[in-house]
Design a protein around this nucleic acid. Structure first.
Lengths: 207, 207
DNA sequence: AGTCAATCTTGACAATGTCAAAATAGCGAG
DNA sequence: CTCGCTATTTTGACATTGTCAAGATTGACT
C-alpha cells in the first residue's frame, strides 16, 4: 500500500480521501442534483468530518473544478471529432454519429456537462489552472480537426474553420442544454432533432 | 391612489412592495449576479423586514419565476421572428438581423435570459402557471412564424418547421450561452459568429 | 367605530461554506 | 526503536441563507 512515498501524497488516514470525495461528488450530483451536493453531505458519505475535504480541495469551487476536469477527460474521446485514424473518411454518416455521440454524452452525463460548460464555474471566480488547460485543449482539438479536414481537401475551401467550429458547437451545445434542462423539447424528438442538426451541419461543411 | 379596490391587491403599507421587489431583484442580479440575490438582501433594499416578501411570493422560486415571466414579455418582441406586417419580405438580411437581435437580447439582458432558459427554474420544481403559459406562447410563436413563411411559399417546402425551429433555436441558444458564460469565445468574435450563424440558418431555409 | 383580512414584523430553526485552533497519525532522523 | 515534524483530521465557531409560526399593525368596508 505505502509503496510511493512522495509522488502522490494520499493513502493516509482514510486511504484515498481525495478520490473518494470526487467519486461521491459525481454520484451525489447524479442522484440528487446540484442541490444535494454539499461539503458536509459529502464528508458524511465518506465517513469523515465536515471540514476534512478542505485539505484536499481549497473549497467547494476547487472541488467542482476537479470534477469538471475529470469530465473533460472522459469527454475528449467524443469531442475530438475525427480520430481520423484509419481509412475512415469524412461523410454524412460520420457527422450524424458525431452529433449523436455529443448529445448522448451531454444528456447521459449531465452532472459532468453542467460543470464543464455551465455558468457555475465559468462565470464566477477563476478556474483551476489544470481545468483551464484541459478545457482549452478540448476546444483547440475540435478546431484543429476541422482545419485538418479542410487541409486534406475533404470539405469546402470557403469555410472558416474557427467560425464553423464556433457555430456548430453552438448548435450542439444549445441542443444539449435544451434537452438537459427539459425546455420545451421532449426527449421523444431527440433523434429527429439530431438528424436535422446533422443535416444542417453537413450541408454547411460543403457549402 | 386607492382607485381600484379589488383588481390588484397592492398599495398597502409599503406602497407597491411586489413591484419594488421585482425591480430590485433584477437590479441585484445585474449588479452582483445570482449570488447577490437573497430574500433577506432583497428585503433590506426595499426597507422591509426579512420575510415581508413571502406575502407576495410563495418563496424564492416563485419570485424568480415572476422575474422570468417579465423577461418573456420583453423578449417576445424579439423572438417572434416576423412581425410579418408590412411588405417586409423574408430575405437574408432579415435573418441576419434576427440573429443579431436574439444575441443582443440574450447577452444584454442575461439576468433575464438565465432565468428564462436556465436550468435553475426548468430543472427543479414546477414552474408557475403563468410562466409556463408565457414560455410556451413564445416558442409556439416562433414555430408558427416559420410555418407561416412556408405556407406563403417563401421558404423550401422540404423543411419541417418544427425541426427547423428546434435546431435553429439550439444554435441561437447555444451561442448565447457560450457568450454569456464566457466559455472560450470572446466578445470580439461576436459579430463574425452571428454572421456565420445567419449564413448557415439562411442556407438551411432554402435547402 | 369596529370587524376582518391583508400586510408586515419578530423569533426561531436547520443547512450551508468556511475559518481557526486543537488533536491525531504516519514518516524519517537519530 | 523513539522523537519530532508534517500531513491529515477533528472540533468549535461564525455568518449567511431560506423559510415557518405567531403576533402585531394597517387599511378598507359595514
Amino acid at each position: 500500500m505505502a509503496s510511493n512515498p512522495k509522488p502522490d501524497r494520499k493513502a493516509y488516514h482514510h486511504g484515498d480521501l481525495r478520490k473518494a470525495l470526487l467519486d461521491d461528488a459525481v454520484k451525489l450530483l447524479r442522484e440528487e442534483g446540484e442541490a444535494g451536493l454539499s461539503m458536509r453531505n459529502l464528508a458524511a458519505r465518506a465517513g469523515v468530518s465536515r471540514t476534512a475535504a478542505y485539505h484536499h480541495f481549497e473549497g467547494k469551487h476547487a472541488l467542482l473544478c476537479a470534477v469538471a476536469e475529470e469530465g473533460f477527460k472522459r469527454f475528449g474521446k467524443v469531442f475530438y471529432p475525427p480520430e481520423m485514424e484509419g481509412d475512415d473518411s469524412l461523410n454524412e454518416q460520420r457527422i450524424q454519429r458525431f452529433v449523436q455521440d455529443y448529445i448522448k454524452f451531454a444528456t447521459g452525463n449531465s452532472e459532468y456537462y453542467d460543470l464543464m460548460f455551465g455558468s457555475q464555474l465559468w462565470k464566477t471566480e477563476k478556474l483551476t489552472e489544470t481545468l483551464t488547460q484541459e478545457a482549452y485543449r478540448t476546444f483547440r482539438g475540435y478546431v484543429d480537426g476541422i482545419r485538418g479536414w479542410q487541409e486534406s481537401g475533404q470539405i469546402s475551401k470557403n469555410l472558416d474553420p474557427l467560425r464553423y467550429a464556433q457555430v456548430s458547437w453552438s448548435t450542439l451545445h444549445g441542443m444539449s442544454r435544451l434537452l438537459i434542462d427539459g425546455i420545451y423539447v421532449d426527449n421523444q424528438s431527440r433523434n429527429a432533432m439530431c438528424q436535422a442538426a446533422a443535416d444542417m451541419l453537413w450541408r454547411e461543411l460543403n457549402a
